[in-house]
Design a protein around this nucleic acid. Structure first.
Lengths: 183, 183
DNA sequence: TGACTTTGACCTTCCAGTCAAAAAAATGAT
DNA sequence: ATCATTTTTTTGACTGGAAGGTCAAAGTCA
């Protein structure tokens, strides 16, 4: 029965995302991922050349989804506070719907920053680019050093992803952040 | 030469703290720690029964320093905002002076929350206790669910510890947080 | 001499990654 | 359609290395 002509690759990515978002990179074994994906380990190597590359692919997917969501804010939202709020709402909305992705991003971003070797440059550049774009959005009317401010905001909101599910509601987070920006 | 009659145990703890604050638990090997402490690996096992116990000892030390600092706030500081501000200043002060400890705490707290087995209960209980005490401090005049609020605050401030040094100044963080509480 | 401290050599387990061979799909000739 | 052939997908069995942990012997100090 041709139930699915089935993206095996996709189900591996899905399993990897699940694994990497609940444990850290080193704590996840290829065996774990294989089990989650209902697949034998060597098959993973058929689709991805290494654990590192699988991780990057996983991270990339999660990250691009986040970017799309956050920068989907309409450009004619010009007032600073409104922009910031819209940005945060998008972020929080993402958190609400894809907590797994955000968790993965937040957990691992500090790791690859300490990673050396040009193979990680791409991912670092991408993350920096994200922060810079946030800075652009916020810099319209803000006086403070907007780059630092942008990082602060992404980190503040991002930190919520690390909380165990159910310990703090997205609403509470939203309340706190928005309050912080409303001045 | 008896240069130091030297707490070997202490220098191992010191090395462990350095290692665990720059890499995650699984990424740090006993060999790494041994090298940092200028000691051979088996000696570590003379002072600590296992990697896990060494980690816990390290974490405990970092954590207790943080607690001491944060709860050193004078009790007769009664007004909510002043209390909160004092609390945050203590936290930030700690961050400024012992970024390593805070980084370790922030990096690993999510890990041991997913750890099972009663051997981790102690450390979980301790961290929960910390959050509860923060809640107590804040609950004097605040209406919101103070437990959640406390966790939010510790997480918001804590997230700053994960930033690579020099990317965002403690002052910037302070500004943002205080602004968030000043309402 | 005897207690404490330190170490080299070794064991075991776990895990990323390989490989050759089996299983399934696709292709194509009759 | 049917079966042989080739290509793609999947797996069992294995390897090499890294890392946690052990232990008996060596060094140190009283």
């Amino acid at each position: 029965m041709t139930v699915r002509q089935n993206g095996v690759r996709e189900s591996i990515l899905e399993a990897a995302k699940m694994a990497f978002s609940s444990k850290s990179y080193a704590d996840v074994s290829m065996e774990d991922i294989a089990k989650l994906a209902n697949v034998k380990k060597p098959l993973i190597y058929y689709y991805f050349p290494s654990k590192e590359e699988l991780f990057k692919a996983t991270w990339d997917e999660a990250f691009h989804k986040l970017e799309d969501k956050v920068f989907g804010i309409s450009e004619n939202d010009n007032k600073y506070v409104r922009k910031a709020k819209a940005f945060l709402r998008a972020y929080i909305d993402f958190l609400r719907n894809d907590r797994q992705s955000l968790r993965l991003i937040e957990r691992e971003k500090t790791r690859f920053y300490s990673e050396t070797g040009s193979s990680w440059e791409h991912i670092k550049t991408e993350y920096d680019g994200f922060v810079n774009r946030v800075a652009d959005v916020l810099s319209t009317e803000i006086d403070t050093n907007s780059k630092e401010y942008a990082r602060a905001i992404t980190d503040i909101v991002g930190s919520s992803a690390l909380l165990p599910e159910g310990q703090m509601s997205p609403d509470t987070i939203e309340l706190i952040i928005i309050k912080g920006l409303a001045k």
